[in-house]
Simulated assay, not measured.
Amino acid sequence: MFSFISNLKTEDKPILIAASFILVILAVGTGYTLATQGTVPLLSATYLLQQLQTGAFLGIVAAGMMIVILLGNIDLSVPWTMTAAAMMAATVGGELAVPAGLAVGLAVGLLNGFGVAFLRIPSMIFTLGVDSVMRGLMVAHTGGFAPADQATDFMRFLASGKLVGIPVAIFIWGIVSVVIAVGLKRTAFGREIYATGNKEAAAFLSGVKTRRVIVGSFIISGLCSGLAGVLLAGYSAKAYQGMGNPFLLPAIAAVVIGGTRILGGQGRYLGTLVGVILIVLLNSVLSIMQMPEAGRQVIYGSVIVGMLLVYGRNAKVSA
C-alpha cells in the first residue's frame, strides 16, 4: 500500500488521501448514527443527493477559487460577491434576475483582476478591500435590513428543482466542472494559467500575456461566486445579509485539500472536486454530531494550515 502511494504522481497523492478520508468520514458518520439513532441515513441515495445538492454551491465557488489559487493568488471577495449577486438578482427579478447576478460577479472579477494584474496590489489585500466595498454597497442598498425581494421561480428551479430525479443544481455544478476541467487541460488559456502560476516572469518572457491571464482568472472566480450566490438565493427562496460568509474558508480548504498548491502552478480539478465532497460530508457528519459553528471553523482552518505545511513547503513543479 505504501509503495503504491509512493509511486503515484505528486498531484495524485492528495486526491488519494482525500478520497481515503471520505471513506473514513462515511464510516465514522455511519457508526455514530447507527449507535445513536439505529439508522444509517448517510448511505442512502436520497441523503447523498441532498448533500450533493447543497454541496453544489460550495463546489461552484471552489471551482473559481481554484483558478485563482493556481496563479498563486487568492480571492477573499467571495462572501459579499455571492451576497451582492443574490441581492441584485432578487431585486431585479423576472427574466433578468440570473443575468443580473452574473453581471455582479463579472464586474467584481474584472475589478479584482485589474487591481492585481495592473495595479500590482497583492490579491489578499485587494480582494479583501473589494469584499468590504461590496458589503458597504449592499448595506446601503438595503438600508441595513434584510431585502424584501424574493427569489424568482426560475432561481428556485435552478437551486431546488429536479430533472429525472436529480437536483438541477447538481447538473449545473457538473457543467461548471466540465468547463473548468477541460479548460485547464485542453486549452491554451489553461496552460497559460499553470505557466503563470509556476513563474509569472518566465511566462511573460515566453510570450504569455500574463495580465490577461490574471484578469481572466479573477473573472472566472467572480462569475462562479455570482452563480453560486444566485443559486443559494433560489435555494433559500430569498437573499439575505452575509449569506456568502460561510463559503470562504470551506472553498479554500476544498481546493487545498485537493492538492492545489497555495503558491500556484500545480493542481488538478479532480482534486478540488474530491475536496468539496470531503468538506460537504465532513460538515454533514459534524452537523449530525451537533458540532457548533465555531468548532467547524477551527477544523477548516486547521485543515488549511496542515495542508500548507505539507504542500506549501515543497518546491513548485509544473502540472
Rank of each mutant, 00 (worst) to 15 (best):
Gly229Asp: 01
Ala201Gly: 00
Ile219Trp: 06
Arg191Phe: 09
Leu184Ala: 10
Met134Trp: 02
Ile170Phe: 00
Ala201Cys: 02
Ser236Tyr: 10
Pro147Val: 14
Gly190Lys: 13
Phe189Thr: 12
Ala233His: 02
Leu231Gln: 09
Gly226Ile: 04
Ala181Leu: 08
Ala195Ile: 08
Thr152Phe: 01
Val179Gln: 00
Ala233Gln: 10
Ala233Glu: 05
Val139His: 06
Met155Phe: 13
Gln150His: 11
Ile219Thr: 10
Val133Pro: 03
Ala233Ile: 12
Val133Arg: 03
Gly222Tyr: 06
Ser217Asn: 10
Ser236Val: 10
Gly129Lys: 04
Thr196Phe: 01
Asn245Val: 15
Val139Arg: 14
Gly144Asp: 12
Tyr240Gln: 15
Phe126Trp: 15
Arg120Pro: 06
Lys199His: 13
Gly222Lys: 05
Gly174Trp: 13
Ser217Ala: 15
Ser225Leu: 02
Leu163Gln: 07
Tyr240Glu: 15
Glu200Ala: 15
Ser221Met: 01
Pro246Tyr: 11
Phe145Thr: 14
Ala140Tyr: 14
Ser177Cys: 13
Gly234Glu: 07
Lys199Val: 06
Ile193Ala: 07
Leu227Thr: 02
Gly222Arg: 06
Ile172Ser: 08
Ala195Leu: 08
Val208Cys: 03
Ala140Glu: 06
Lys185His: 02
Ser221Val: 07
His141Asn: 14
Ile193Asn: 10
Ile214Gln: 03
Phe171Val: 10
Ala146His: 12
Val178Gly: 05
Gly129Tyr: 04
Ala228Pro: 03
Met138Tyr: 06
Ala202Tyr: 02
Ala202Met: 09
Ala237Lys: 12
Val168Cys: 14
Ile180Trp: 05
Pro167Cys: 04
Thr142Phe: 03
Gly207Met: 04
Phe247Asn: 08
Lys162Gly: 00
Ser206Met: 13
Lys199Gln: 10
Met124Val: 09
Ser217Tyr: 10
Lys162Tyr: 09
Val133Ile: 15
Gly174Ser: 11
Phe189Pro: 05
His141Glu: 14
Leu231Asn: 00
Lys209Phe: 00
Arg191Trp: 07
Lys162Trp: 00
Lys199Leu: 03
Gly229Glu: 02
Met134Glu: 03
Ile170Thr: 03
Leu205Asn: 06
Arg135Ile: 08
Gly190Thr: 11
Phe189Asn: 03
Gly136Trp: 03
Ala237Tyr: 14
Ala140His: 09
Thr152Ile: 06
Val164Asn: 11
Ala203Met: 00
